[in-house]
Design a protein around this nucleic acid. Structure first.
Lengths: 339, 339
DNA sequence: AAGTTACAGTTACACGATTAACTGAAAATG
DNA sequence: CATTTTCAGTTAATCGTGTAACTGTAACTT
């Protein structure tokens, strides 16, 4: 049986209050007693019962973390860095995978609250803004997704995806491309997917190109959809000049590049490709994928820091926006060549 | 403020015991009271305080999960499936990333126990057998790693990596290769890395080949080490016939294939490659990677099921071994060609 | 020296649930 | 009808902490 604070108190010949005081360091205890108590704790292999403490102080030192798919290294990285800063401050993470289902997301949030987490980090939620902003008894920070401003104890940490789409377009235009395609993500469901597309389109149109110069197709961010949609697009494609394709997630871009190869075309010679996310392995697919670096490390670390700061300060989140920068990382998949 | 069981009892005009009984369904309560109490719970938006319950019943319904690197999709998949079965039985997962450090692993286990988890799943631990087998107050199941038999409330779920290495060798030999290389993982630290190598070597030697026919190099399972070690190997490499390379993790194999390309050679024309793990994306690198399917789904699901079963039955784990099968998945990276 | 202050350490209650032991009225028994 | 049994529901203890309120001694004040 595990030793309790009473056992320690008895062995050390003091009251439980004194033992508690040496553990929490909230009151002065004489050096001799500290010594005696410490010895007793060691002898009994005592370790405080966190659950009992949680009940008493009404804090669990646990944080709930929701991701759409832990299998995706993009989310894996966010989790990793978020966890790093949580652990440094002695908080623990309860992870749940929502499988991209709004229903599950809802249910996860509820059980998190029942389980008494001190805060929630919700990565790329699929919920509608309105539901997201519902008042909850614990602070929640939303990662990788903007929303309309609010003050319901919630905050947002995300990269500016519109600007990201912009950068891609700028790059293509500056290199002299004149025919554009965007394989967009699920623009109806994922706000960032829409932002990427809009940033891309707007820049190009601003440069004097016409709607006919910049086509787009809807996908769902998965490898398969990148492959399928690109393949279908290429059925009716006639090469007249080098096409510039913005495939708005790396995983999807890998799929699109496979489709291009399978159709007997080459990247970048026939079709230049730029992705989005900068997943680690994108540096190693062939050709190395030019992409927008989505700052996972900062997304994870900053959102967690923000959450912990508000928990520790006992203040409320105030609907703050933390907007991070993305930058283009130039590799080989988008080289401009004589056609 | 959150409503408590007392508030519900008062509003419904009954004792807290009765409320508790309708929640836990352990005793008969008349339909009328159930009705009244349910209404009261709804009105107050009551939800039981899990922490208080945990303290009382000495169960937290939380499980600790340790992985070496959550960024690696191989571990991501294990986590995903483990979590799925845990949630189905209303358990929650606390995830920690050990960053492959034994010291962190040790510390994580300790805080898990302090935090009162009901059980621990330790994926691919880096600890030595002896420490792993130390008696602990909670059951622990070890995933993706064998160990010497023991009965200290511990169990093991893993795939037979020796047999996996065997299959790779068999495949190569049957296809008619006669010159072999193995880029092995960290054989001193990770038992499975050693098993893969041994399974590979033994089969080949059993077929009458000599030690000179089958070289090996030590790596650390990372992309970079696959790249670096292969590149270095190729410095002194003279092509005299098609080489068969077993690169014992997919991620490492991607690196090795990049190195091969960078050195002006081709896969599989000059060097055939087989990986290990069957990470999702290995189906999509170019050429599609032939590999051993490491059954992540089963590893995750079965280990969790085993853990939950013993927790629910209040029995102890008895050092059981659950050995899963792996199978070769044939793709394009190992095609045998006229040299 | 009497009265006040300071303070190390203890007593006892609270956190929110579960549950063994109890109560008392109705039903069953002979 | 008297006695036992049954059982829905209550009372009160308990889980392992933290902490406000209290105690008693020693030091300080005047």
């Amino acid at each position: 049986m595990r030793a309790t604070i009473k056992d320690v108190a008895k062995l050390a010949g003091v009251s439980t209050a004194t033992v508690s005081n040496v553990i929490t360091r909230k009151k002065y205890v004489s050096p001799e007693l500290i010594e005696k108590i410490t010895k007793a704790m060691e002898e009994l292999d005592y370790t405080p019962n966190t659950i009992a403490r949680s009940l008493k102080v009404n804090r669990s030192f646990r944080l709930g973390l929701i991701v759409p798919d832990i299998t995706n290294p993009f989310f894996g990285e966010i989790v990793k860095y978020a966890e790093k800063v949580a652990n440094k401050e002695n908080y623990h993470i309860t992870l749940c995978d929502s499988d991209q289902s709004v229903e599950k997301e809802r249910q996860i949030i509820n059980t998190f609250i029942e389980n008494g987490v001190d805060g929630i980090i919700n990565v790329a939620p699929r919920m509608k803004d309105r539901e997201l902003n519902r008042k909850r008894p614990v602070p929640m920070v939303i990662v990788d997704r903007p929303a309309f401003e609010t003050d319901k104890n919630i905050a947002f940490v995300f990269a500016d995806n519109f600007e990201g789409g912009n950068q891609v377009a700028k790059r293509f235009v500056e290199q002299g491309f004149r025919k554009f395609l965007c394989l967009a993500g699920p623009v109806d469901i994922v706000p960032n997917a829409k932002k990427r597309l809009m940033g891309f389109q707007e820049y190009i149109l601003d440069q004097g190109f016409t709607e006919a110069d910049v086509e787009f197709r809807k996908c769902d961010f998965s490898f398969e959809s990148g492959y399928d949609v690109m393949k279908e697009y290429l059925q009716t494609y006639k090469k007249t000049e080098q096409l510039a394709a913005f495939v708005s997630s790396d995983i999807m871009a890998w799929g699109a590049m496979e489709a291009i190869k399978d159709m007997g075309l080459k990247v970048p010679e026939d079709i230049a490709v730029i992705g989005y996310d900068n997943i680690f392995f994108s540096n190693f697919v062939h050709p190395r994928l030019t992409t927008i670096d989505n700052p996972t490390k900062q997304l994870g670390a900053m959102s967690m820091q923000l959450l912990l700061d508000t928990i520790e300060s006992k203040e409320s989140l105030k609907g703050n926006y933390v907007v991070l920068n993305s930058k283009l990382v130039e590799r080989q998949s988008d080289e401009r060549l004589p056609f």
